[in-house]
Design a protein around this nucleic acid. Structure first.
Length: 539
DNA sequence: GTAGGGTTAG
């Protein structure tokens, strides 16, 4: 008989409430109720709560720390509860915590023992950390307990060694198997592919005594990862069985290679093959539509999403907002944006950038303020749009305030692009000294584009001396940089130094530097047109 | 009473 005061079993209603919960606030409600009624002390009830907290559709560091608080408030957690929290941390950005909790388990007063589940999770944590020393120690313990007989634990170890770069150990374990196991082979193959070690992947693949769809999917993505999309396509076409991942890998490959026509063609093939597209497919197809500026196909995909009752949030919402923005339908973009409940920072970023790029500067900044008011943390991409909005609108004090907010409030290290916006903004107001001071914090070598920006500002403010100084600096840095030549000759031209202009142009030719033409695309009446620009511009 | 290995995304 148990001496511990066990709580009564929880009523089924609270358990089913937890089962259907899909937000942290619903779990808080269940949690509060359980604390009040004492059901939280029932191990099964608290484990249901914890499991749900670790598998919410929306997970963040917040949900994870909530899960941790459930764990820490559980008196004498059983092995299931330990395993659940260890699993949650094993693939999180903080896998070390999984290890800390694992040590706590080993030293637990109520003598909890690690089991085969514990080891799959903790080995995975070592893999995530890339910490082979820890991995080896855990492996030792696995062997001692005799759990290396378990194929799940065994395969996770194979993957861990591969992840840590110990390919020979990983391979040795595969060879040590009495019976061939395709997942064991795939565990090593996947790491070769992930690291772009395509030769190793190919060699291993040829040697594999067992293969499945996933093995071939890895090979296709292996070709894609090293930029050989056509080779990937050959493997893909020869596959007898294709699952949704096969199609997605190939489609993603074309998207990465900017081969948007192929993306759209493959998408049609996929539908003809009666394979159901998932979010990953649709995100890529939409991004191809955005890439070619095809509003009609974007709309078609949107209709497909609605027809099939696919929920739009996060990734998919971002892709839709983006495609409508890129195709110039800012109203449709807003409609999607406002109709989406689950937005992540990228969704906000796409909307802010879209508004800003279409000249709705106030709306862009208002949307940014809304985001802040909603308690969402902006990232560096957000600030690119925000600062560029300020720069476009000549909003000097706002721009300075945002730049300060980014650095001091959100602790985001500005990148060259952020500095670029500030230089541009300061330059427009003729605050060349302030801009130069800002730039001087950066190594010149890293920021030629910023100096170019300051150079054009100095030209438009007739600070010819500064302009000439920067132009020479740019050429010194990179004698093949066309922009440097263009700018320098423009400076000289504005001073009427035509002889020097000719000299620069001669030097440019002798270095073999040409000005690259710009290129842009637009859809008119359902046909995508491509334009080349840049010729005939005075040098 | 609940669980585990290798996989594509802006």
């Amino acid at each position: 008989m148990s001496m511990v005061a066990t709580a009564t079993s929880p009523p089924p209603s609270i358990l089913s409430f937890i089962e259907i919960a899909n937000s942290i606030s619903q779990l808080h409600q269940a949690h509060a109720f359980m604390l009040k009624t004492g059901h939280f002390r029932n191990p099964f009830a608290s484990s249901r709560l914890l499991t749900k907290a670790t598998s919410l559709p929306i997970s963040s560091p917040d949900t994870l720390s909530y899960a941790l608080s459930i764990f820490t408030h559980t008196e004498e957690p059983n092995s299931y509860i330990y395993n659940t929290i260890i699993r949650a941390y094993s693939t999180s950005p903080f896998p070390q915590l999984a290890l800390i909790i694992f040590l706590k388990l080993l030293n637990s007063v109520n003598k909890v023992f690690p089991d085969k589940y514990t080891f799959t999770f903790i080995v995975k944590a070592c893999a995530t950390m890339g910490n082979v020393k820890q991995g080896e120690q855990v492996h030792g313990l696995v062997t001692k307990i005799g759990l290396d007989e378990d194929i799940y634990v065994y395969n996770t170890l194979i993957h861990m060694y591969a992840k840590c770069g110990c390919f020979d150990v990983s391979r040795g374990m595969i060879d040590g198997l009495v019976e061939d196991d395709v997942i064991a082979w795939n565990a090593l193959l996947s790491v070769y592919v992930e690291r772009g070690l395509f030769e190793f992947a190919r060699e291993l693949f040829d040697e594999m005594p067992v293969r499945n769809v996933e093995s071939l999917n890895f090979m296709v993505s292996g070709y894609v990862n090293v930029g050989l999309v056509d080779e990937a396509r050959k493997v893909f076409d020869e596959m007898l069985v294709k699952d949704v991942v096969s199609w997605n890998v190939m489609i993603t490959g074309y998207t990465k290679a900017d081969k948007f026509d192929e993306v759209l063609g493959l998408f049609e093939d996929m539908l003809r093959a009666k394979v159901k597209p998932d979010n990953c497919t649709l995100v890529n197809v939409l991004s191809a539509c955005a890439g070619v500026g095809s509003l009609s196909q974007g709309k078609w995909v949107h209709a497909f999403i609605e027809r099939n009752g696919i929920e739009v949030h996060d990734f998919l919402a971002t892709a839709l907002v983006d495609v409508y923005c890129k195709c110039g339908c800012i109203e449709k973009a807003l409609e999607v944006f406002n109709g989406t409940l689950r937005k992540d920072i990228s969704t906000w970023n796409a909307m802010i950038a879209g508004l800003s790029n279409h000249g709705y500067l106030d709306d862009a900044l208002n949307t940014f303020n809304e985001l802040i008011a909603d308690g969402i943390k902006p990232n560096e991409v957000t600030f690119v749009s925000v600062l560029s909005t300020c720069s476009q609108g000549g909003l000097l004090s706002e721009g300075r305030r945002m730049f300060d907010l980014m650095i001091n409030e959100y602790r985001i290290q500005p990148t060259l692009v952020h500095y670029g916006c500030m230089v541009d903004l300061l330059g427009r107001f003729g605050l060349l000294e302030e801009a130069e001071e800002l730039l001087s914090k950066l190594p010149v070598k890293e920021a030629p584009a910023l100096w170019e920006s300051l150079l054009s500002a100095s030209r438009s403010h007739n600070d010819v001396k500064l302009a000439e100084r920067i132009a020479s600096k740019l050429l010194e840095l990179d004698p093949h940089d066309s922009a440097g030549y263009v700018q320098l000759s423009n400076v000289l031209a504005s001073m009427g130094r035509w002889g020097d202009v000719r000299e620069v142009r001669r030097k440019m030719r002798s270095e073999g530097v040409t000005k690259e033409p710009g290129c842009s695309m637009i859809e008119v009446d359902g046909v995508v047109h491509e334009f080349l620009a840049g010729e005939g511009i005075i040098l």
